[in-house]
């Protein structure tokens, strides 16, 4: 599904290399987790894959089922099935959540040459999906993320994921700012979307999210590279011993 080879990325405005030859393969239907200390480049990876401005790819490649992600516009990547659940979802005053969702879904469908969804079908579909995430009608009507609590914002991200049905989902520190109940709700939402045709890349700082969203593979990232790959037990090791041992091992 996702194939990243020798990815080198620096900041556009300053001479600072963030990713230094990152290799990663996420197979179709699998859940991979990336853990790593602050500043290891985890969020940069998610931004570069989704096409945020401010980064320059100096070497390497990133493809999704053969589709060259790095050459495409942000919206083209989304229409192709890439989804990034933001660490800090953006508030957009004046645009209702419902309008936002519908515009996004129909824009993606249009880009793929599919028919747009009728208003009636759309409403029915969204209400159903919102219900399981405990997102009420009021939250759907309100401007995107405006006045939402941290937990509500993250649930709203998962709702977008559920509505857009992407094939490659990247979750960037989705657990940050969540209490235990909210984490459970978000995780249940993600788990419900696990599917043999859909892959996940879960970026997290802590192991606790991975108790709920159990990964197939865990990678440890440090200084712009993957330094170790293993099974779910690797996450437990980090939880117990911290990153220090792993970093020392790799130094």
């Amino acid at each position: 599904m996702l194939e990243i080879k020798n990815l080198h990325v620096k900041l556009e405005d300053e001479d600072k290399q963030i990713l230094k030859g990152l290799n990663l393969t996420v197979e179709t239907g699998k859940v991979h987790a990336i853990m790593g200390p602050n500043g290891s480049g985890k969020s940069t990876l998610s931004y570069v894959l989704s096409g945020r401005d401010g980064y320059e790819v100096t070497d390497g490649s990133a493809t999704m089922d053969g589709f060259d992600l790095l050459e495409a516009e942000t919206e083209e990547r989304a229409a192709e099935g890439l989804f990034l659940a933001f660490q800090y979802p953006v508030e957009i005053p004046g645009v209702s959540n419902m309008t936002f969702l519908r515009t996004a879904l129909n824009a993606q469908r249009k880009a793929r040459g599919e028919e747009e969804m009728s208003a009636t079908d759309f409403l029915k579909m969204v209400r159903e999906k919102a219900k399981s995430l405990k997102i009420d009608a009021d939250m759907l009507k309100r401007p995107v993320n405006m006045g939402f609590s941290g937990g509500e914002k993250k649930r709203n991200e998962i709702l977008q994921m559920a509505v857009l049905e992407p094939k490659m989902c990247i979750l960037d520190e989705t657990d940050s700012g969540l209490d235990v109940d909210a984490m459970k709700l978000v995780s249940d939402g993600v788990n419900a979307l696990r599917d043999e045709g859909r892959s996940f890349l879960v970026i997290t700082h802590y192991q606790r999210l991975l108790d709920h969203i159990v990964p197939d593979v865990v990678h440890i990232m440090a200084d712009g590279r993957i330094i170790k790959t293993g099974g779910p037990e690797l996450a437990l090791e980090v939880e117990k011993n911290g990153y220090a041992d792993l970093l020392a091992e790799n130094a």
């Binding site: 096409g51 942000t74 919206e75 004046g94 936002f100």
Partner: peptide, 29 residues
């Protein structure tokens, strides 16, 4: 707002449409 624009585009809304949505939101006030 570039952050909002990126967010909308990351959901598949083309640049121009994302901008128009934000124009509408601005005028709506």
């Amino acid at each position: 707002d570039e952050d909002a624009l990126y967010y909308l585009r990351a959901r598949g809304i083309p640049h121009r449409k994302a901008q128009d949505l934000m124009v509408l939101a601005f005028l709506a006030e």
